[in-house]
Write a protein that binds this DNA or RNA. Structure first.
Lengths: 212, 212
DNA sequence: TATTTATTGTTGCAAATGCAACAATAGTTT
DNA sequence: AAACTATTGTTGCATTTGCAACAATAAATA
């Protein structure tokens, strides 16, 4: 899960955080607004528990899921562009988040504590991780067909037994892939006929046909 | 151009860099390999001059342009996933790059200099900027039609007079948008007929029809 | 439990897209 | 200048896609 950062370091990070800067952990329930764009209040959030989505709403009111966020993921309204579309972070279930004010990171620690530097370095690592995940999404969206998008998505998320369980909904997946839902269903059927996948309700087994 | 970081800070950053850690500025000419994926040598690059592309090549040999990079942009092989596809950074013209070894940033500065902390903070800011640009690319790719993709792309890059000059080629743009080139040309013609744009060779004028 | 709401599954159809193939230019090299 | 190469412009066509509309389930709520 966390490749670049080990768990010990993460848990130490959480402890250091409260030592060093003023942080508050907040709990959100399903479908609550965690953070939205703000040109003034720049915050970094760190998910300690649960799941959330970065959701975009354009001026016509169409919403799309930009990113999936999970435990140990970092996010910030710093990342959002000043745009016509509105971007929110919405909890997907009970979610706990630590908020860190951006400017308290930038300025030197008032307590001059040794944590501060470490804090920045860890945030740095987390940012790099986030960057990687964004790259992944760009790769996903670079796929030309729904089949390719879906296969990439599934392979990225399947377990050791090549099984992926739809925990959200097919609707949510279609939004994440930016494709039409009904077409996604049609494509799923085609892929099953082709022998690329097997499907039972919300379980999808990816049959690795691609050996070269 | 650089919104979050002012120019003074960037130029100070460059000076500090050479004071603090071992850096080398390298010059690349057109279409040279600047950086590729490496699980061992983790480097961060900072473009001081010129333009470059992040280019992906899949196992079938299809190449696509993942990102555009320009002066003051940051990049790193840290951002790349361990994947079947190969990712390179290629210069697009004469390009100067400062390389910083990732691990020299993480460990404390041997000289214990005050620059070190500032260095990390600036890198932090640059990473956030990069993150924003990635978000922009995700937004671009989230558009469903070629017309929408193209309009988003053009509006993002047009000057005050609503003019965009194709400095690279239409081919390169089609690769950047992950769409078929011939279709892009067709779409350009349609958009001209619709009165959305005006076009003369490599100049495109975006006519802002969208007033609500 | 009955009712309401959300999701899933299906299909016809028009529109958009990618592909292939080729001509016309523009740009480069010999 | 001639030859070569890369880019641009065009088109027909098969395929893919999104849209709309509706039925069948499943899930949530009264």
């Amino acid at each position: 899960m966390i490749k670049g950062l080990d768990k010990i370091r993460i848990s130490q990070f959480k402890k250091d955080l409260s030592n060093c800067v003023n942080v508050k952990e907040k709990t959100f329930y399903n479908k609550e607004l965690i953070l939205s764009y703000s040109p003034i209040k720049k915050q970094i959030g760190f998910i300690t528990y649960g799941k959330a989505n970065i959701v975009k709403t354009d001026k016509e009111g169409n919403t799309t899921i930009m990113r999936d966020l999970k435990e140990n993921d970092i996010f910030s309204n710093l990342f959002f562009q000043d745009s016509e579309d509105e971007i929110y972070i919405i909890s997907n279930e009970e979610t706990k988040v630590i908020f860190i004010d951006y400017y308290t990171i930038l300025k030197n620690c008032p307590k001059n504590c040794s944590f501060h530097n470490k804090l920045v370095l860890t945030l740095f690592d987390l940012l790099i991780l986030d960057n990687k995940e964004q790259n992944e999404k760009i790769e996903l969206l670079s796929k030309r067909s729904v089949e390719e998008k879906l296969l990439y998505f599934l392979k990225q998320r399947m377990n050791e037994n090549h099984i992926f369980k739809v925990t959200t909904s097919y609707k949510a997946i279609s939004e994440y892939l930016f494709v039409d839902r009904s077409n996604l269903m049609r494509e799923l059927k085609k892929m099953e006929e082709k022998g690329l996948i097997e499907r039972k309700d919300k379980w999808i087994k990816i049959l690795d046909k691609e050996k070269d």
